[in-house]
Nucleic acid binder design. Sequence first.
DNA 1: TTGTTAATTTGTAATGATTACAAAATAGAA
DNA 2: TTCTATTTTGTAATCATTACAAATTAACAA
Lengths: 134, 134
Amino acid sequence: MTAFKEHLSKHDIKPSVQRLKIYEYLHNSHNHPTADDIYRALAPSTPTLSKTTVYNTMKLFISNGVATVLNIEGNELRYDADTSTHGHFKCKGCGNVYDFRIARAPEFNGVEGFRIDKYEINLKGYCNVCKPKL
Amino acid sequence: MTAFKEHLSKHDIKPSVQRLKIYEYLHNSHNHPTADDIYRALAPSTPTLSKTTVYNTMKLFISNGVATVLNIEGNELRYDADTSTHGHFKCKGCGNVYDFRIARAPEFNGVEGFRIDKYEINLKGYCNVCKPKL
DNA sequence: TTGTTAATTTGTAATGATTACAAAATAGAA
DNA sequence: TTCTATTTTGTAATCATTACAAATTAACAA
């Protein structure tokens, strides 16, 4: 995909084979994969891939603004190629992470004068597939 | 503190010596300590304390509703005795975690019919002490 | 092409938080 | 006291992430 190549280049990321594959996977998968998910998904078609490369690449992607990291579960980092403002819902039943739009932004009281670089809304509960099974 | 004892009892937590000390520390400290912070703060006055007890106790506190867990940083869990709705701001300069009130709640689009049990707003950036030093 | 240097990727070992687990200590009831 | 359930403890295991140095690849001048 030439579009992906250009997107990475535009953000000062040299589009190596590994970086392109990782970005393509991240962009096409909407399940907010962990580094391990990415590694396991790409390893068969990229036999030499190293998990360290996945971590390195994700750090690069985040600091250059083509991905974000998701702190919704304490013991794992999840990644998202959608850098627009949106929230995440993690279902305690199936474990899926759903995106949602923020229809009305919250207002804060107590961080006046602070510089806010990142803003994350995380919900947890049961999705409408799992809720009836409780 | 008898008030703490009653608070724990009311939530079906037997107020053992360890649990009381941990709850008291968590309640009085407003820095959202990690399990390790709690352990290091109490170890001198509770020589037999085990870190496993801190983890066990925090799990119990959370499932019985006297504390919440904070996923603001990927590699660590932080705890909070304030179970009311509020947000957290982590400063990338000093590392402090500040509380703030949510003056106007956000509205979501895309989780209709979901059961929402927990709702977390995390901000990151620079507080007004660290911002001028950049 | 070849040679040289910088950037990228890789594998292994280390780190650090959390959990599993079983033994020891303690509390509560009979 | 004695018995039993609960709580606490220490150690070992797990698992995600990072550190680091060697190997590979890319860029590019000669």
